[in-house]
């Protein structure tokens, strides 16, 4: 977006800027849809994390910067519109650290998108738990196994979703 002309592959052109804006919007809609289908009856705090399917898709396509940009924008916008300062801390810490893990695992080229997705989801939940420890003390740690297992299940679902999307929709992100 800088004024100087640059033709590097990292350059954001108008088409990509628009596409990423659309992806941020899609991620926010996913967050909203998800809030309509509460999974609290399984265990408190459990979410599918549909919005993370968007950043995972970008990361899986090798668009690491785009993944971070879209994810952070989505988190900040959601927090401004629907959240609070505390929810922002939780979302941002979980979102950024899990995306770092996602990107690093993708760079190793050892794992498939489903495995990467699971690792990201589990990391997300554990980082949020760590944030919860800062707020509420170590008593919440007994909840870790529930969060890890729900991370595996949700990561599996999101990874499969993105696997299908990548296979069916041949597009450049």
């Amino acid at each position: 977006m800088s004024a100087k002309q640059d033709n590097s592959p990292n350059r954001i052109d108008t088409k990509r800027l628009t596409l990423y804006a659309l992806l941020v919007a899609a991620a926010m809609v996913f967050s909203y849809i998800e809030s309509l289908v509460p999974l609290f009856f399984i265990a408190p705090g459990v979410k599918i994390g549909l919005a993370n399917a968007v950043s995972l898709l970008l990361a899986a396509k090798g668009r690491y910067k785009g993944a971070f940009a879209v994810n952070i924008s989505r988190i900040l916008l959601s927090a401004l519109l629907f959240g609070s300062a505390v929810s922002l801390v939780f979302s941002l810490s979980g979102g950024i650290v899990s995306l770092i893990v996602t990107v690093l695992l993708h760079k190793t080229k050892l794992f498939g998108i489903v495995g990467i997705s699971i690792a990201g989801a589990v990391t997300h939940n554990l980082v949020q738990l760590a944030a919860a420890v800062l707020f509420f003390g170590g008593g919440v740690l007994y909840y870790a196994p529930v969060l890890v297992v729900s991370g595996i299940v949700c990561g599996l679902a999101l990874g499969t979703l993105d696997f299908v999307i990548i296979k069916k929709i041949k597009t450049n992100l």
Binding site: I118, A119, Y143, V148, I152
Partner: peptide, 25 residues
């Protein structure tokens, strides 16, 4: 899904088990 993905699932389950042993609330 690559077969290596199962390593990630196994590692995650291991983390869950470790927490379960450490904090049996």
């Amino acid at each position: 899904m690559k077969w290596r993905d199962f390593y990630i699932i196994a590692a995650a389950l291991l983390i869950a088990a470790v927490f379960l042993c450490l904090f049996p609330g």
